[in-house]
């Protein structure tokens, strides 16, 4: 009887989406943040000097492009931090937990409801950036971005992994927090490791190659799986309802 129900999962996702749409501040915040991160990379492709003097145009575009990875790192943390403590503060968590929904369905539904808009906006912004590169960038810049698979792989592959990390940390904080504000502030800390990672890549401590992108993706995948398992363990009904560790 304890089987995972995709219908329940979809019900949670649908409800969350409906809820986001009704709250204008959520929609505005969701839209503004990614586009702010788009400004720097787009400006960067215009300021690359004329081709003759540029030894390696990647030096000019790599940091701004990696900057785009901050979108999936930062954007979901606020929403994820709201998932549990927000419901608890509204008084909706207890009625929800009295339904047949399982912990796995609850986590998956809540997580997916944050991941879906995050990825839609992230890839949407990527698309706009690549379109801008294709249309406006100098050929050296264009070839530096499209010609180097590692950059695109890093962008495409690492985005959901970074978002998942951010969501897992945000949800973990949300389970423990007693106030939405505290949860959202602590949830923002989830973006520190990804920011450090991007900095390491950007300053050249590690040279961003395809192999490096793949290795980081695998490591991130492992970290994400571990983080999600920890969150799943924390998502105990008793803990969710009482806000404290279950005791016997």
């Amino acid at each position: 009887m304890n089987t995972f129900s995709s219908a329940r999962l979809m019900a949670v996702i649908r409800k969350e989406m409906r809820d986001y749409r009704r709250k204008r501040s959520i929609v505005v915040t969701m839209l503004i943040l990614p586009f702010m991160f788009l400004i720097e990379p787009v400006v960067a492709i215009f300021v690359v000097p004329a081709s003759s003097g540029v030894s390696d145009p990647r030096n000019y575009v790599i940091l701004p492009v990696l900057y785009l990875l901050l979108i999936p790192s930062i954007m979901p943390s606020t929403l994820a931090a709201f998932t549990v403590v927000g419901e608890r503060e509204q008084g909706t968590l207890e009625p929800l937990l009295t339904t047949p929904i399982s912990q796995q369905e609850f986590i998956a539904g809540k997580g997916a409801a944050v991941l879906i808009p995050t990825m839609a906006l992230t890839y949407g912004v990527y698309g706009l950036f690549l379109l801008a590169v294709e249309v406006f960038a100098k050929s050296v810049v264009s070839s530096a971005i499209f010609g180097q698979g590692s950059l695109l792989v890093a962008l495409i592959l690492m985005a959901p992994l970074l978002a998942s990390w951010s969501i897992a940390v945000g949800m973990a904080v949300s389970v423990r927090a007693t106030e939405i504000r505290v949860a959202q502030q602590l949830g923002a800390l989830a973006s520190i490791p990804p920011v450090l990672l991007i900095l390491i890549l950007a300053v050249g401590v590690i040279h961003p190659t395809l192999a490096v992108a793949l290795i980081f993706s695998i490591i991130l995948l492992g970290v994400d799986v571990r983080a999600i398992r920890i969150v799943a363990k924390m998502m105990n009904r008793e803990r969710l309802v009482t806000g404290s560790k279950p005791s016997r």
């Binding site: 509204q90 009625p95 929800l96």
Partner: peptide
């Protein structure tokens, strides 16, 4: 283990009805 099955058969209304205000 029987949580889901029990919850299918019962209904609980907490003191605070806990409604989604934007819905």
């Amino acid at each position: 283990e029987n949580g889901v099955e029990i919850r299918q058969r019962i209904g609980i209304m907490p003191e605070n009805p806990g409604l989604y205000d934007r819905l």
